[in-house]
Computed example of a mutant assay.
Amino acid sequence: MRIYVPATLAMLHQVEADKEVGPAPLTAFAVTPALREWYLDDDEEVLEYAAFSQAARAALRLLDNDPSAPRRRVVLSADVPDRDVTLHPDLERAVVRSSVPISLDRLASIHVDGAEAEADVAAAARVIMEADLGDEDAQFVVDGTDDYELEWYGVQELPELLESFSV
């Protein structure tokens, strides 16, 4: 199963050091039966983008919790065995949990906001909790991050990616 794990650039240092994403359980997002039912769309790419977008939104919550992390969302795409994943539609349609850490060789790619998104991501991270609680103005700020596509990096580029940021 392809899952999308929210992260921060600061967390990527630990991933590089440990050669895995952890510790378990890890909350992630995926194309789940509940997401399929809600979206009513059979296009797998559309469904994967919806799950990916939820992970990017969750990365804002991680940034809110870590004021020292660079203000860029990070999403890790990973392929994990279905047996290691539990669905959690009680939390959100696309939420899953990996019961084991995800080894570096299971990562398919790394996605990071470009520099042009930094100011809007910073603003969104400051108000993500208010948006989650229904504040429409905060939701407008958070929705503004949807205008930015995260840049794609191969897993082998992780050391160079981390070198480009002083975290």
Rank of each mutant, 00 (worst) to 15 (best):
L87R: 11
S53R: 10
E157G: 00
T8G: 07
H111M: 11
A94F: 06
D82W: 02
A30G: 08
V15E: 02
P6Y: 07
E116R: 13
L104R: 05
V167K: 03
V21G: 02
E130L: 15
D147M: 08
S109W: 12
D143C: 10
D113I: 11
R106Q: 14
V31T: 09
V96D: 03
A24T: 04
W152P: 03
P33Y: 14
A78P: 10
G144L: 04
E44D: 13
P67Q: 08
M129E: 12
Q156P: 00
E136W: 01
V112F: 06
E149V: 13
S166F: 14
L12I: 07
D147V: 05
V15P: 11
A55N: 10
V75L: 09
E157W: 11
M1R: 12
L107T: 06
A34P: 04
L104S: 04
A55D: 10
P101Y: 00
I3G: 00
D66F: 00
A119S: 13
A28W: 00
M11Q: 15
H88I: 05
H13Q: 14
H111D: 13
T8I: 09
D43S: 07
A94P: 02
H111A: 02
A124Y: 05
Q139P: 03
A124H: 06
W38N: 01
Q14W: 10
D113K: 11
G114C: 09
D147P: 02
P6R: 07
M11A: 14
A122S: 12
V155W: 01
V46H: 08
A69E: 07
P25H: 06
E118V: 15
V142C: 06
D43H: 14
R36N: 04
Y4C: 08
A122E: 14
I128R: 02
L150K: 00
F165C: 03
A69Y: 06
D66M: 02
E16V: 13
L60R: 06
D90M: 08
A115L: 11
V127F: 06
L60M: 09
L162Q: 09
E136D: 12
V80G: 04
V5I: 15
A124G: 05
H13Y: 14
L107W: 04
F140P: 00
I110V: 13
A108D: 14
G22N: 08
